[in-house]
């Protein structure tokens, strides 16, 4: 065991560098999206994976992205356990009818702003399961899809993530380093988003949930909620900035509190989801997180 630890300490990380920089290489894409993600969300992006009937192949590859060789977290993308903590729902599988309700409710439980990524052939068009009596097919039949990643193996998935993010920002890069064409496309324009109202998206938040959230906000110091939801970056930076030792100090420090609330208005309800949609300014602010 100690030998192992020693080797780990001295041997350097096993994580592979992103492949050698080439005009369309992964490295560049990583950089590209690093910037993209930074501009929108600071450094972190929380992904909640939802299996809506996949064969488990997609899940295996998502797991692989977390292994030390690919180490997705080094780019600030990480998988979280609850939809309440998530910015992105990553949906796999041909949405079985038995899972449709659960998927819809997971989507409702994810705070705004949120994106939905359909991952794998099944999630995009039903794959080999299209046309079954038990499947609904593409994810967008249930919830609006923002981005599509047709690939499953981790390298491609990794590349796909980056491409999607950059594409979402309007920089459309459609070729991988192999020169293969990917059909990554920003789907904001052509899916349910623009006519959300017509299609019934987003469904009204459930009242119990709202009430719970607001009471949470008033009875507890805000930074705590931030810390839980926003991850270590947010909470640590808040603590550092205020220079305080504990929770009470921070609460007593209105400026720190205000500043924090301004930086993190997204999930904690200062700007409610409804607000967000109406006010572009607030919405833009909502994307911003501290960049260190």
């Amino acid at each position: 065991m100690f030998k192992h630890i020693l080797r780990s300490l001295t041997g350097g990380p096993v994580t592979e560098a992103a492949p050698a920089p080439s005009p369309d290489g992964l490295a560049e894409l990583a950089g590209l999206v690093d910037r993209a993600a930074k501009a929108r969300l600071g450094r972190s992006l929380s992904i909640r994976a939802v299996d809506a009937g996949s064969c488990n192949g997609c899940e295996l590859e998502l797991h692989a992205m977390n292994n030390p060789l690919y180490d997705l977290e080094r780019f600030g993308l990480r998988f979280v356990a609850s939809p309440r903590h998530a910015d992105v729902l990553l949906v796999t599988g041909p949405v079985t009818k038995n899972m449709a309700d659960a998927l819809r409710r997971t989507w409702e439980a994810t705070p705004d702003p949120k994106w939905v990524v359909a991952c794998g052939a099944c999630a995009i068009d039903g794959g080999v399961f299209a046309g079954s009596y038990a499947c609904l097919g593409p994810v967008e039949t249930v919830i609006p899809v923002d981005l599509r990643i047709p690939a499953a193996p981790p390298t491609e998935l990794l590349a796909g993530c980056w491409l999607c993010w950059s594409a979402a920002r309007g920089r459309v890069a459609t070729k991988t380093k192999n020169g293969r064409n990917h059909s990554f496309r920003p789907c904001h324009q052509n899916t349910a988003r623009p006519n959300q109202a017509a299609s019934g998206f987003p469904p009204k938040p459930r009242p119990a949930l709202r009430r719970q959230r607001s009471s949470f906000r008033t009875t507890r110091p805000r930074f705590r909620a931030n810390g839980i939801v926003g991850g270590p970056v947010a909470s640590n930076s808040a603590r550092h900035r205020s220079g305080s030792k504990g929770r009470r100090d921070l609460r007593a420090h209105p400026r720190a509190q205000n500043r924090h609330a301004r930086l993190h208005p997204t999930k904690r309800g200062r700007a409610s989801p409804a607000h967000d949609a109406e006010s572009p300014r607030l919405r833009r602010q909502a994307f911003r997180r501290p960049v260190r």
């Binding site: 009937g53 041909p94 079985t96 038995n98 899972m99 080999v128 046309g131 079954s132 038990a134 499947c135």
Partner: peptide, 10 residues
């Protein structure tokens, strides 16, 4: 049964 895709039918 949540992931029943109807494979026997397909």
């Amino acid at each position: 049964g949540y992931v029943h895709k109807g494979i026997e039918g397909l």
